[in-house]
Design a protein around this nucleic acid. Structure first.
Lengths: 243, 243, 243, 243
DNA sequence: GATGAATGAGAATTCATTCAT
DNA sequence: AATGAATGAATTCTCATTCAT
């Protein structure tokens, strides 16, 4: 969507531009984000932005798309990497079940947000972008995520990891909401400010254990719900004894 | 918070003003909402708004508070009404369990959103309001809802409707997210545009059955999770009695 | 100039109104003074002001006129009183000379400003009122004061207290400027805030001696100038020897 | 203080802008001056002003500073020029006494006001600017002038041009007031409207002789006061030669 | 005579976008 | 390709004045 001019830019310049723009849109919603602020940060001319992009909206769309793609690829690579490692060990490479796959995805998604606060925060903002002209953006993001989750759910149904009478669309919705808003929970629970991290480029102050534990809690909720545990189910037997 | 002038207004005029302002803030986020648009819609002088309210922010705060209060009272009245009706029938008035209480609350909350699209949508916007100056507002709304859900969860733990090892804060978080975003699911599933309803003052195109069914699905997810049902579990039978 | 309505007002109410209005115009210049602030201070309706006065300007004119008249009468009474007292003592009641009359006037003028900070400050403001529509006001005030000073000067010439070759208009101008701006000197020298006194209704923290001394200094400047004293003049002989 | 944009402007454009702005602030006090009026006079876009200056206040501060500096430099250059001319003639270049220095300064100050009515009037306004936010400005201007006069007075004391028992601060005050308000005297005496000159860019209707005469009168007042002249004093005779 | 809500012109300021250089 | 000054519509907010009750 950017103009050719943008891609003709020397790698380094394009990179600096992208970074500054990501910063701006991570720190402010679409309306509040300011083209002037971006250029003054970079020390370039305002007109340049309009050599690269048709308008503010196109710039925004590009950044969202870029962030989404980056995040997706990072997660995908990480999940695959993990799988192959395990696969190498236990020869039969038993396919992981639904919950394990979900947990991994969520785990790497969260890690991504901590290590790429700009991208993560921009995407989060975009998801809730209230500006009318931008509705399409959040819709697209939702649909992307939903598509992925839907495939997971369908696989889960096939393997019997999920109960057969599940309303797929509803399950996808629930998964989607809990997944993206996990950020808020983590943020509050660990008093971690993603916006602060955007500004400071701050590092990851959350231990892997703590993060995995939270995600395990999420997975458990999804697997069993909030209700009391059925006593004679095999599934539960291996869990820590409750009551 | 409004100036006395506002409350001295004839009922009818105040009503018209409130409606138009709710419209504006339901259709746009805080920054994008325009005082000028409100007055031009109403055909009144710009100065009038500032006779009623100190500034745009005070107006917004008033509307959010009003909407929150209205929604809360509506839900509360409806839930109580339902309870008393049932109570009258079966004399012992068995207290409803966690899931039933939750379902009722969500049901009436959704009904409210359909019948009061202005209020519902304004509240929804406020929850995700990105404007920095307004962070306190969304935080307050979240905390209000969370407080209510927390009390439900704690009651549920006491009665054994919820499993004892539950992480309360996490459960509250999950309930909160699924509850408020149910709007999005309903909107998509029933192709119902809340913003459209704000503009058109549109009626209720969703059958009670359909709505109840969705909420039942939500409750089921929360009760059992997504996992397969334990076969010989006594869970269902013993539900009121735990351990 | 006020409408008859204003004078029909019960004494007390008219008094309260006048006081509040004097406050407002003492504390702010014409443009910055706010009719709304006056009525909100008084707790009366905005419309009332326009029952009493045609508009803000008429109100202002009235207040300036009132303050000028009050100040003039106060000074006049005080000066006359002083004169008669002295007169009683030394039977021939020798007429005071120019400088003594001037000193007395300035002294009582300053005392008035300290005891009636509202009036004094309003008059001072009016003298320098920059608002174009109000030029006539400051011109009138200047002319009033100038007229009085002119009469003093002419008497002084007649008695020989002033040198015969004096340019009367220029002398009047110089007297006028030094007289009205004495306020600034006093304010700085004694760290006395007249506006503070308006707000606090504060008392007179300046000793009579200090004030008289300053005025004596002013009189001396006017009598002799800044230049070195002529040696063989009788007048000067009693002064401390210079050079 | 202006933004770089302002100084990057082509000379001519910057000049036109400055002139129009000086006009506006010469004709109105700070609050009454209108940015809108300036741009409509110039036929430029409102936004341009904010490309040049942060806000109205910065614009005002710049103009006052500019006017003060211009006036000071003009006076300084003229006084020096005069001195050097005379100096060249009479080789010993006898230093001028206090009154001569003061007269020269006042003369060139007045000339400046006639030839640069915009600057002069703006400065005059600024000196009496009533707006609370701008108090610092008038204080600064007063202090600058006072500092200069103080140095003159101290030199005058050293040379014996001024009587030794003078209260320096009081003398400075009197000099300051008479000096700046000379404008008013000239304006009235010669029926010259400085504001009119601002608008009309009007020429110099005052003869040099007349002006010099007025200033001589001022100097005489300051030298001798208003009192009758001592008959046998040597003061007059020795005037050029001091002690 | 009092009331006080309504008015609306006008103020300062913002900012995405354009376009001549 | 880069520049950066110019644009102008849009925003919030102010306040003396009016007028129906």
């Amino acid at each position: 969507m950017p103009k050719p001019t943008f891609f003709n830019l020397p790698e380094d310049k394009r990179r600096r531009f992208t970074d500054a723009a990501l910063d701006e849109f991570a720190l402010h919603d679409y309306r509040s984000a300011s083209v002037s602020r971006i250029v003054s940060t970079l020390g370039i001319a305002k007109g340049s932005v309009y050599q690269y992009f048709e308008d503010k909206q196109e710039l925004y769309l590009y950044l969202v798309t870029l962030a989404a793609q980056t995040k997706f690829e990072c997660i995908d690579a990480a999940v695959r990497g993990e799988a192959s490692v395990r696969g190498n060990v236990s020869a039969p490479s038993s396919e992981p079940g639904f919950f394990e796959r979900y947990e991994r995805t969520v785990y790497h998604g969260a890690r991504f947000d901590f290590t790429h606060p700009r991208h993560g925060t921009l995407l989060y903002n975009a998801t809730y972008e209230p500006s009318g002209e931008m509705l399409a953006v959040s819709a697209r993001l939702r649909e992307q995520s939903a598509r992925y989750l839907r495939s997971l759910v369908e696989a889960g149904l096939a393997t019997g990891d999920l109960r057969a009478d599940l309303d797929v669309e509803f399950a996808v919705f629930a998964l989607y909401q809990l997944t993206i808003s996990l950020r808020d929970y983590l943020s509050e629970r660990f008093r971690f400010s993603f916006k602060g991290a955007v500004q400071a480029g701050a590092g990851p102050p959350i231990s892997d254990e703590a993060l995995r534990e939270v995600i395990a809690e999420l997975a458990r909720l999804l697997r069993q719900g909030l209700g009391p545990v059925a006593t004679t189910t095999e599934e539960q037997r291996t869990q820590p004894r409750v009551c």
